[in-house]
Design a binder for these strands. Structure first.
Lengths: 189, 189
DNA sequence: GCGTACACGTGATGC
DNA sequence: TGCATCACGTGTACG
């Protein structure tokens, strides 16, 4: 009996839903839709994957997995790159400053008989606070960091003093801020 | 005829492979393997996707697609970030140097009556080649690039000269190489 | 019971 | 011809 009915259906229901309408057609159409959804999703997924070995379902999935792994690796590499760059930059900018703090010492800033050219004409010989640090960076090379009040001509006199001591300036970096005067010099004895 | 044979098969082959062994069993097993592969791939794919809405096949595919889009967006953002950082850094480092080339001019390097302290005691007053460039970078601010032969005390005298002209040095960058002497100064009139 | 998702076996198709 | 893949309809289990 079931054989017959089945045979019937197979022969008469080439397109389902003609005779016994709500029999299995509901499941049939939903299943069709489901398959369509899966198919569409798989196709859409393969469209986003650049490297496609084959158009198989399994191959698409494998390629998608590989692609995701590759993307994750890229993200990781880029993150590392940014991190390294930032670290390097930070290290470079702090290289001289973070090694050690400038020591504070009291020292007469005036090393010669020259006097300050004050607008009032008043001669000042005041003692000035100076921060100084010397690091030896080679057999005959030193790094000198020097922070003092900004004074006209003071820099030239510093140079003269250094030269008079038989020292030679290789590189110099001078900047002024807040009326201060910061030198970082590489000198050779 | 086909109907009959089909009926035959359907009734006798409840478990495939009992009677006509290699009939469809090959296709059956390969199909099983294929389904297993697809299933495994889909499962493996879902394992790599962090955001899972449902465990549906279609949902897995959709989530995977979204995840790939998200990863691509991340990669793009990171690339842009790196690119911007590099551009900024490059611009900052080339800001002063790329404006124009140093002009070459002939000029007496000695600006005062002081003489060179030669080991032989011989007084030299030779003319030296000097490359000089001045750029105005503000209303009262200038950028001075200065390249000359290295001479002891020359730098101090340059400072004195600048000061004597009523100019004020804000920042200075000095380096020596090949017996040359390169200054880049930011000065204010 | 109803809707949904799945696995299954099978016919069809392409190489 | 085999071999691999696919779509299809169906049975079935779960909520």
């Amino acid at each position: 009996m079931s054989r017959f009915s089945r045979l019937q259906r197979e022969s008469s229901e080439i397109y389902p839903g003609s005779e016994s309408d709500g029999y299995k057609s509901k499941n049939l159409v939903t299943e069709r839709n489901r398959r369509t959804r899966i198919k569409t999703g798989l196709f859409s997924l393969s469209a986003r994957v650049p490297k496609i070995s084959k158009m198989d379902k399994a191959a698409i999935l494998g390629d998608a997995i590989d692609y995701i792994s590759e993307l994750l690796k890229d993200v990781k590499n880029l993150r590392d790159e940014i991190k390294n760059a930032e670290e390097e930059e930070c290290r470079a900018s702090n290289m001289e400053l973070k090694t050690s703090k400038l020591e504070t010492c009291q020292k007469g800033c005036m090393s010669s008989t020259k006097v300050n050219q004050d607008p009032s004409g008043f001669v000042k010989k005041e003692r000035t606070e100076v921060q100084l640090e010397v690091d030896q960076i080679g057999k005959r090379h030193f790094l000198l960091k020097f922070l003092c009040e900004k004074k006209r001509g003071g820099f030239g006199r510093l140079m003269e003093t250094i030269h008079s001591l038989g020292l030679q300036i290789h590189d110099a970096n001078i900047t002024t801020f807040n009326g201060k005067f910061l030198n970082i010099l590489k000198i050779e004895s």
